[in-house]
Design a protein around this nucleic acid. Structure first.
Lengths: 206, 206
DNA sequence: ACCCCACCTGAGAGGACCCTGAGACCGCTG
DNA sequence: CAGCGGTCTCAGGGTCCTCTCAGGTGGGGT
């Protein structure tokens, strides 16, 4: 199959390198400077999951398109949560593969971590897990949403109005509810983690 | 289905607005300031293709996740080529939808306006951080606004009337308040940082 | 040398802004 | 039904920002 894909992609104008096992693919992705990686999940030596997760942990955001015979829905979700950008199940159409590949290459190579992280606070949108300096913290849905917004903006300051709009939507009443939830967050994360910028809003403490 | 999705996404902490036809959806996407758009291809009034293509032609790059009962391979390719960011075919798994949506939302971090800087004074509008020769300085909202204006104009001189108009607006009373706030700034930044040009105004000292 | 006027500043009133405890409401669970 | 966790409103109280005012200072023109 690697040979067939190489032929097809080359005919479409792509320049293709092939690796035949996990470790060598990881090595190539690390240092090859590729525009995109086409990754099979079933690899000798190292699973595709491990490859993509390792890359992301190393802050390598090369676009990864995962390719697999598996088709359980949770496999897709898993691959995406591990940091893959897109997913194709075999048997797949070459036309679709081309379209997805082009879409990936078009994208800006901006860092896209699966988890948001700043100043000791880690938040994983997929698993709803939040840790502060490694310690696990339980958050309610609203609290989680507020923290997510603050982390996404960090180190910038987020106004109460923006938080209100992002978390409560247009039907929001007043900004006091934001103050209350920031209070809840401080109680759970630690008093100093969320900083008030008087007259402006809140931010994650540096 | 819209109701079911709204319920599910709301439970996950998303804020959801629903539009039931193409034109109203397009309008909402244009002006709603959304983090992402979930778009069905089969819409009354205007096809989803048209919606996403129109948005892209208007240079609106809001992330779009297309959702459709169609499953021909060319539909997927078409949607992606029209500018959609990702694609899901019905019936789809809610877990996968969530994963894809999160991947889209975290894609592009908000572009931060760059910091203003002049003669040892650095001011970052996003983080509201002000440093003088590297030392951090705390400023109130009004003080910040005055300094921002002075820095933006630097090395030019800014008249009191212009500062008054820029910071206090039309309802301004007298220029003495400007003098008072320049005094506050000098106290915090250092006496020599803001220079008085008698009869004209103020400027950042060279 | 003198004086006028632009500018500076300390004091203090008032209030905007923010935090928080108490409690109502709701849906879920045992 | 009682208990509980999550959500939200409300009012009281503390902090510090904002602005006014009046008196002081000094530059520069005559």
């Amino acid at each position: 199959m690697a040979a067939a894909l190489t032929r097809g992609l080359t005919a479409e104008g792509f320049v293709v390198d092939v690796c035949r096992d996990g470790p060598s693919g990881l090595e190539a992705a690390r240092f090859g400077g590729y525009d995109a990686v086409l990754l099979d999940l079933m690899l000798p030596g190292m699973s595709g999951y491990t490859v993509v997760r390792t890359l992301r942990e190393e802050a390598n955001w090369v676009p990864v398109l995962v390719l697999s015979a598996k088709d359980g829905e949770y496999d897709q979700a898993d691959a995406l949560d591990y940091g893959a950008d897109d997913y194709l199940t075999k048997p797949f159409s070459f036309v679709v593969l081309l379209a997805k590949l082009r879409a990936l290459v078009r994208r800006d190579p901006v860092p896209r971590p699966t988890a948001v992280q700043a100043h000791g606070i880690r938040l994983d949108p997929a698993t709803r897990e939040v840790t502060v300096d490694g310690a696990h913290v339980e958050l309610a849905v609203r609290e989680f949403a507020v923290l997510e917004r603050l982390l996404a903006a960090s180190p910038a300051v987020v106004s109460k109005e923006e938080l209100l709009d992002a978390v409560w939507g247009d039907a929001a009443e007043g900004v006091n509810i934001v103050e209350v939830y920031v209070g809840y967050l401080r109680r759970k994360l630690g008093r100093e983690r969320v900083e008030t910028v008087r007259g402006v809003g809140y931010r994650i403490a540096p």
